[in-house]
Every structure is written in structure tokens, then in C-alpha cells.
Design a protein around this nucleic acid. Sequence first.
DNA 1: CAGGCATATGACCGTATGTGCATATACGTG
DNA 2: CACGTATATGCACATACGGTCATATGCCTG
Lengths: 115, 115
Amino acid sequence: MESAFAVLAEPHRRAILSMLSSSERSVGELMHHLRLPQPSVSKHLKVLRDGGFVESRVEAQRRVYRLNPRPLQEIDAWLLPFRRFWSRHVDALEQQLERMEENSSVKGKKRHGKP
Amino acid sequence: MESAFAVLAEPHRRAILSMLSSSERSVGELMHHLRLPQPSVSKHLKVLRDGGFVESRVEAQRRVYRLNPRPLQEIDAWLLPFRRFWSRHVDALEQQLERMEENSSVKGKKRHGKP
DNA sequence: CAGGCATATGACCGTATGTGCATATACGTG
DNA sequence: CACGTATATGCACATACGGTCATATGCCTG
């Protein structure tokens, strides 16, 4: 698993993180919410653990998982240069859209025809 | 490809986006920088196009690609709830770290107790 | 119009990944 | 100590993905 993004590529894993952002949860709770068999949940949790997204606490037989924000903070940091980009280019993009509109309305067509 | 995160899971694609954040580039330029065969570059560009991350402009035989910030903005938006989480918990985490420090310095990375 | 450059697309292959099932492990309780 | 609950792990399988090679398409130039 090379990057935090690869971990987040999986919808169930994002769902787990979202659930954990509101509060800690046991595997059973996650399982119930996600409507996913327990082994799947455990495996996703392993990926999340290995990626540093979550940590677990043992509570009797339960493992209670909680969020660890660091990897998400790294993603936040990765976005930084792009934020500069889009704040610089907001107006340029709007102009671009206007140009596209007045230029043609057939943007869906793929010009593959042969002459 | 179900999500923007899946698109970003690929390191070469992130590299492409980073390159495009500084300026537009032709496929050839990207190819040269990434040291990747041209078909690979084109395929990654297709994924990025389908995901809305980039747009291309035709310039003679060249296709010049530029960044489209929207999908990245969506990711930025997805991070919002987590930002609230980590700003709420920064101090808690610091306390946690201090506790761990004063508790023991030999715990290392035990995480997976083996019997 | 032929030829060449720039890019896209298709087929094939090896590998990684998510899922399901079966099972192992750990813990609490009678 | 046997049993049930809660979670993790190993195996098998199908699928998706990235890389490579070969080829198609598009455009420019002589």
C-alpha cells in the first residue's frame, strides 16, 4: 500500500473513517452500519491501521477503533499547492466556461469519423 | 473508477497533477518528465480526464493538458469534517503523547502482540 | 498525396485487491 | 475448564489495474 490515497480509494474504508470521525466504534458497530461481513470489516481496519488512519483500544473482547488524523493531515498538506492553483484560477476558469458555452454546445461528440 | 481517491491512488497520476499545477504540459513533456512510455502516460491521462482532474486542448498535433481543480476541491470538502475532528483533538492527542512518554519508553511498535 | 510526428486505443499479461468462507485466537463467564 | 462472544487471519477466487507492444488516428510538411 503505497499511499494514503490508495487506502482511501476504498469506499467502505472512507465510510469507516467518516463513522469514526463522530465517535469511537467497535468492530461490531462498524459491521452493523456497513452491512458487511465481519472479516471484511476487520481487513479494512487492518489496512487503515497499517496506513495509520486508525488506532484500536482493547476493551474486554471488543476492539474499539478511533481515528488518527495524521494521514488525513498529510493529504490536506498535499492539497496545498493545488489550493493556490485554484484560488489563482477561479476567474480564469469562469471565463473559460463562458467561452466554451458560446463556442459550441456539442461537446459530447467524439470526432472519430473518417474524412 | 468510482472515486476521486481511486484516481489519486496512482503515484504517476499524482505526479502528473503536480506537474500540471505549475503549468500546462503536452503529453510529450509529461512523458519525458515521468520517464514513462507514452501509452502509459496517455492512459493515466484518460483516467484523469474521466475523473475530471484534467482537460486537454488541441494544439496542432499536440494535446496540451491543464489542471481542472474541481475534483480536488471535492476532496478538500470531504476533508472538512475531519479537520474539525483534528482541531478538536490536537490538545487531546498531545496529552496522549505525553502520557505515552511518561508511561514507558520501551513499548516500541508492539501493535501486534505475538504469542 | 506520401511520410512523419504526436497521441490515443486495443490486446495481452502479471499482479494486487476485495470478498466469502472456514478457522484461529483472545477474553469473559458459568 | 468448557463454552460463547468478539475479532483476526489464511485460503481460494474473481476482478481490476498498470505496464508493454502493436496499431490506429490526426495533423503538419514537403
